[in-house]
Write a protein that binds this DNA or RNA. Structure first.
Lengths: 197, 197
DNA sequence: TGTACATCAGTGAACGCGCGTTCACTGATGTAC
DNA sequence: TGTACATCAGTGAACGCGCGTTCACTGATGTAC
């Protein structure tokens, strides 16, 4: 698989990684072609050898951000299993961690970008809808198999909404109190009885 | 109070109303000086007689949007009282109405703009934090007086998160199902027993 | 009441800057023989 | 193995457009006497 395209693919990947981080930190408007290329160690002229347009790059970057975030969540669940806490608790504590008040660049792109979605291109919105679905599925997988189907959607809303309101309140006592209230509520009402599963 | 400033104040008000609507529909980036002035029936040159900068206008527009939205919510609560449903039910059904999937321009600015807030100016973020607080207070006022203090914050998160995820899913079956699940959950778990109060 | 002047709200042309996009070119990598 | 040529990834200057901001000016409203 060391085809002639390899070198270009490596660069493409580096650009995407950069864009996926900046996107979550700075929003769609904050992702500039020249800036992303510079951060990736390149000049802006080469951009169009990798993407047909800025719009196309945004859609790819959102998908990448979703994969990043999903993978991080899975690692947190695995770590939770090692500590013998429920998968649900591991998920809630990872998603609503105080640390996420500040740094959004490695977190969930839905929480970082949700209110901008209705104004994005079809490709971007499709990627966003897929990410909502996969987040809901990840939540469902941490609930007991007897939980109603809608419960996962409700919990996903709570996770995203709580993180956004806390970020709006700020990285201070108010914001942290808001996160803590959501964590406590979710654990009190939805944590399955059995530690592992 | 028919002071010489009256005419200018009327114009100022019209500009702000326009900006408050466009802001919720198109986001912070979508509010352009020339566009807003044109929609208000003016030319862009006069803008700086009303605001010191575009940034200052954004902060004022966000406050205005918050007032609009709060007033609409209060009217919905009053209408609910007339129909002898609980204030809580009136609030949930108004906030999570299917109609809000499409039109954000008259709705809650927090739901319309939350994920853009961390990147805004101090003045804008302060206005946003105040609106989160007032939304939480509005929710608290519809709960029984014996409800724990954190409950209102959790419900506010659910309202905002559910609306945003539904909008991300789109104005279709998926989006509407998402909203319906949240409405049902909130009513089943938090609606006070007594119809009025 | 009427006239002359001052103030005020809004106009429209112009400026500077950032940013997405294009394109001719360069240096490096790979291929043919 | 070595040489000549083709392909490829990336460079950097330039273009065009949108947008926030400035400013000299105009027509209308209000005030002094």
């Amino acid at each position: 698989m060391e085809s002639p395209a390899t070198r270009k693919q490596v660069t493409h990947d580096r650009i995407l990684d950069t864009a996926a981080r900046v996107l979550r930190d700075s929003g769609f408007q904050g992702v500039g072609v020249a800036d992303i290329m510079k951060r990736a160690g390149l000049t802006h002229g080469g951009f169009y050898a990798h993407f047909s347009s800025r719009e196309a790059m945004l859609a790819e970057a959102l998908e990448r951000a979703g994969q990043d975030s999903q993978a991080r969540l899975q690692r947190a669940l695995a770590a939770g299993e090692a500590k013998a806490v429920t998968r649900f608790r591991a998920l809630v504590e990872a998603y609503l961690a105080d640390r996420h008040l500040r740094s959004a660049d490695s977190g969930c792109p839905v929480a970082a970008l949700a209110s901008e979605m209705p104004r994005q291109s079809d490709a971007v919105r499709a990627a966003a809808a897929a990410r909502v679905t996969s987040l809901t599925a990840a939540v469902a997988a941490t609930l007991g198999p007897d939980a109603p189907r809608e419960t996962a959607a409700v919990i996903a809303s709570q996770l995203v909404g709580a993180l956004q309101l806390a970020r709006t309140l700020g990285d201070n006592t108010q914001g942290r109190r808001h996160l803590a209230a959501s964590r406590q509520f979710l654990l009190a009402h939805f944590e399955p009885a059995h530690p592992n599963r």
